[in-house]
Amino acid sequence: MTSIDRLTDLCPPPPTALSTNWSSTEQALGMQLPTDYKQIADTYGPGAFCGFLHLYHPYAPTQWTSLTGPMSATIRTQLQHDRDSGTHPVPHDPRHLFAIGVTDNGEYLFWLTEPADAPEKWTIAGTEARGPRWFTYAGGLADFLTAVLSGCETVPLFPDSLLAQGVFFSPTTAAPTSTSVGTAAQPPAGMTADSRDIRAWARANGYDVPDRGRIPVAILEAWENPGNG
């Protein structure tokens, strides 16, 4: 049984998902991607595991949750600043960290992209929201998700109640049917931005935003009018 088979047996995917142009996606990113990630993205599409862990996807509804959007570079720049200034310890070279997901609480999930030309050997790392703690997993993304969702792997940064409602995947309900790879996907007309996207954008741009509750008006205005910041 393959890694993706174990994951789908544990967490059934939606009946349909988007078909991704991986050649164009990898060309836009300038790197090859792990096979298991491409299988997960094609099988599940954009969405969240247990309503908590959101993987970035090439066809996500906003640029802030798109694999080809600006988040990975923005987060890498922040980590480099933290490492250089000593604000927070960063146990890995930020140049080798590529952000691939975010939780509802603001923890980021990364690939450790070493060796750069061997994506099947990339492992997983994560950091807490605006804090010093990190975790690592010595395996690929599909194995990591299976270990976490089965309860075999405990991530100290994740809530104890993660599996309290069972194991499930919630697809994004308003994902675009197509997008120009390399260009950030935009929400469909009339779609309200997800608060998770706004919080992720705010943290990446240096705003102090609470994990829960009302998002300050100033941050909402900055999100809606980024060119005025």
Rank of each mutant, 00 (worst) to 15 (best):
V181N: 10
L29Q: 09
C11V: 06
F169N: 04
W201T: 00
G213L: 08
P159Q: 08
S66W: 05
E26A: 11
V148S: 06
S72I: 06
L141T: 03
P15T: 12
L7K: 00
T8V: 14
L7Q: 00
G182N: 02
W122S: 11
S150E: 05
P159W: 09
A193N: 05
D36C: 08
L7R: 01
T179E: 09
T146K: 06
D211V: 14
V209M: 09
A17G: 13
V217W: 05
L18F: 00
R133Y: 15
H88C: 11
A147K: 05
I124A: 06
V90R: 09
R214W: 00
L163F: 08
A28T: 07
V167P: 05
S72F: 08
T127M: 12
T65K: 04
P15A: 15
D208M: 07
Y108E: 08
S66T: 03
Y108V: 10
P132A: 14
V181R: 08
F135H: 10
Y59C: 02
P58R: 06
M31C: 14
R133C: 10
C152S: 14
A147M: 01
L33P: 02
I219G: 04
F98N: 02
R214D: 15
S170T: 12
P14G: 06
A184Q: 01
N21Y: 10
L157E: 09
T177D: 15
L112Q: 12
N228F: 09
S23Q: 15
I100S: 05
T43W: 06
R6E: 13
S161K: 11
P12A: 13
A142K: 04
D9Q: 14
Y37L: 13
Q32G: 13
P46V: 00
